[in-house]
Design a protein around this nucleic acid. Structure first.
Lengths: 244, 244
DNA sequence: CAAATAGTGTCTATCAGACACTATTAG
DNA sequence: CTAATAGTGTCTGATAGACACTATTTG
């Protein structure tokens, strides 16, 4: 083709957001109920079209979040998750969607925005299992987002962000267990976390109210990249061959 | 915004390709010399605009590869690398580029296509060091691609794809050393590779011509995901804290 | 006291890395 | 023989996982 005498076709660009949080020790994803066709009434990820040609992609993602879920969270860190651009994924025509991922603690119950009949938290496992059905290819996007979150817990200090400003080691363990969907030995977890230098540092008066011995409080340490990493228990399917 | 009574803006969508190969035990990246403005004459990644609104992104990537580098490699596996969409990254206007990555062995010397004054292999380290300057934000894209390749060697059997149908363990070691930019102990490497079950399996007559003891030949095994993974030597910056 | 949670000590199997040593070829 | 590359054995220190044990609280 000759680049000089030809105008490239324009494409509709959308952003979709996978917003994950932890509620009652379970991983939840933010979903809206679509207010317009296509898929009116179905559950979907928040998102929408770029508003004008010069709009920054991340800015568009933040704008959609504010519009559709009334979440004006300036500080929410969005990271690129993937591109979903199969022709035919959207009945309105060729829509290429850039997906962003945010993982954050204790996000508020959202309120419905103008575009969406409702925006609510739903359990991620219900989406992954197919118990909840999503519009478009959004289940696939959630799958990718959850897998990304699981991987990030291994190598980054993300888990501390799910806890309050101070937390106990057991609190932190709950985060790993919820996102990974496993249960961990508290004693080995305790030392594993301590040995990963810079991950957590002691904080404040070392007490807390429940039954049992009071736990020490910690806060997030300076390290954002964990070394050594926290490794997920090996899934049986990935496990070592039966014999040799 | 009201989705019903408003037409979203269209955006120019491009694909860019990071094609990596190994030549003389060094990692090389395919670059074209741009034949048109902007950045005429500068080195850049192969790529270009989507041709029509319904074109599949991967198909567009393959097409550009054929057009710009005369590489009609149907089998070349392209994987999504990232999205580069900063407003201002392209002087022609808002261009959002989807980058794809391919990693393959012994690719041929490309010939110039119609769009590009030339397409040639260049050493990846010269791009990363800034010795070679690329158009747009393409150096950044190459950085991301090389990092992705390094990570893939750890967890996937990709390295075998860089070798011929059969290879010696030393051949395989050269791949790791070239991509990671390190040198490895041949004896530990030997057993590490053997212990990763399904990674490589013995092949053919166990001989090969050079000086020294003949080496056994192997071929790629059934496993695509390596367990245990091949781990890169820890960079000093990532290493354990000086003391405690 | 019992129950519950927090935190420590310790054993074992495994593994990465270092490196001495043997094996097999060419010249 | 020497040089060179292939392949094995073995030691050491670190680590993951299992789990006994101690510590500190509430009721």
């Amino acid at each position: 083709m000759s680049e000089e005498h030809w105008t490239p076709p324009a494409v509709l660009l959308a952003v979709d957001l996978v917003i994950l949080t932890l509620r009652e020790s379970r991983l939840h994803v933010l979903l809206i109920e679509r207010g317009v066709e296509p898929y009116q009434g179905a559950l979907a990820l928040p998102g929408g079209f770029l508003q004008h040609a010069e709009e920054d992609l991340i800015a568009a993602a933040h704008r959609e979040l504010a519009e559709e879920a009334a979440m004006d969270i300036e500080t929410l860190h969005l990271e690129h998750l993937g591109v979903y651009g199969d022709p035919g994924r959207d009945p309105r025509g060729r829509v290429v969607s850039i997906a962003y991922l945010a993982i954050a603690p204790g996000l508020p119950e959202p309120t419905a925005g103008s575009d969406a009949a409702g925006a609510r938290w739903h359990r991620a496992d219900q989406v992954l299992s197919g118990e909840l059905r999503l519009a478009f290819d959004h289940r696939r996007i959630v799958e990718d987002g959850v897998e990304r979150a699981r991987a990030k817990l291994e190598h980054s200090a993300l888990a501390t962000a799910f806890c309050g400003p101070t937390f106990t080691i057991t609190d932190l363990q709950r985060v790993y267990e919820a996102v990974w969907g496993v249960s961990l030995d508290p004693r080995n977890f305790y030392r594993k976390v301590q040995k990963t230098s810079g991950f957590i540092v002691p904080a404040g008066p070392e007490r807390k109210a429940t039954t049992g011995r009071p736990a020490r409080l910690f806060k997030a340490g300076p390290r954002k990249v964990l070394y050594p990493p926290m490794v997920r228990p090996v899934e049986p399917s990935n496990a070592k061959e039966p014999k040799e």
